[in-house]
């Protein structure tokens, strides 16, 4: 079933359809929250709040085809609320034991290297401006198109492209200045 079909079914009172919608979108929402907040617990909370909000407001969604943009907008707003609430300025790295992004790696060394690399990237993402970070995350990690990103952030498409360019450039500079990043690349992933 497509998203619009699941939305219509949910509106008709089919809670299982909503469950399928959640199952389909909880990954992207959680990953967006995790990359923007750099905190697994906060990301889980934001994901939960996002879907509660989605459930409450689903009847008000007029253009069901725009569900992708709508749900990510809600998730982003929840992230901004969370950042305001906690006033998080310091970096909080994702603990290694909580990581689930090691699947599909060939060897233990490579798995460890990839986890460490992910940590360095996560750390670097927190050091670039927030407005560039969210565009980079949506474009490179969420695989959204520039028009979709522009719709989520309610900015012009060219602004989204510009922020992505400067974000990637800033991220490169941060990674290059991180000695741990160079070591990890050299020892595990070369």
């Amino acid at each position: 079933m497509t998203d619009p079909e699941l939305i219509y079914a949910t509106r008709g009172g089919d809670e299982r359809a909503f469950g399928r919608l959640v199952e389909r979108w909880r990954g992207p929402v959680y990953n967006l929250a995790l990359r923007l907040l750099a905190d697994t617990d906060a990301a889980a909370d934001v994901t939960q709040r996002t879907f509660i909000k989605v459930h409450q407001k689903l009847a008000d969604l007029k253009a069901v085809e725009g569900f992708t943009v709508w749900v990510l907008q809600i998730a982003r707003n929840q992230c901004l609320d969370e950042l305001k609430r906690v006033k998080r300025h310091r970096l909080r790295a994702v603990p290694l034991e909580d990581r689930h992004d090691l699947a599909g790696t060939d060897s233990a060394d490579q798995a460890v290297g990839q986890a460490l690399l992910s940590d360095r990237i996560q750390a670097a993402l927190q050091r670039i401006p927030a407005e560039q970070r969210e565009v980079v995350v949506m474009k490179e990690l969420q695989q959204l198109s520039f028009p979709e990103i522009a719709a989520v952030l309610t900015i012009p498409v060219n602004t989204a492209k510009s922020r992505c360019f400067y974000g990637l450039k800033a991220l490169h500079a941060v990674l290059m200045s991180d000695p741990a990043y160079a070591t990890i690349r050299h020892e595990y992933l070369s």
Partner: peptide
């Protein structure tokens, strides 16, 4: 940078209590 970011795999989301 894009090549490096491409190596980051999505993290599995925890179960939700809705």
């Amino acid at each position: 940078t894009r090549e490096v970011l491409a190596q980051v795999r999505p993290v599995e989301a925890p179960a939700l209590d809705l």
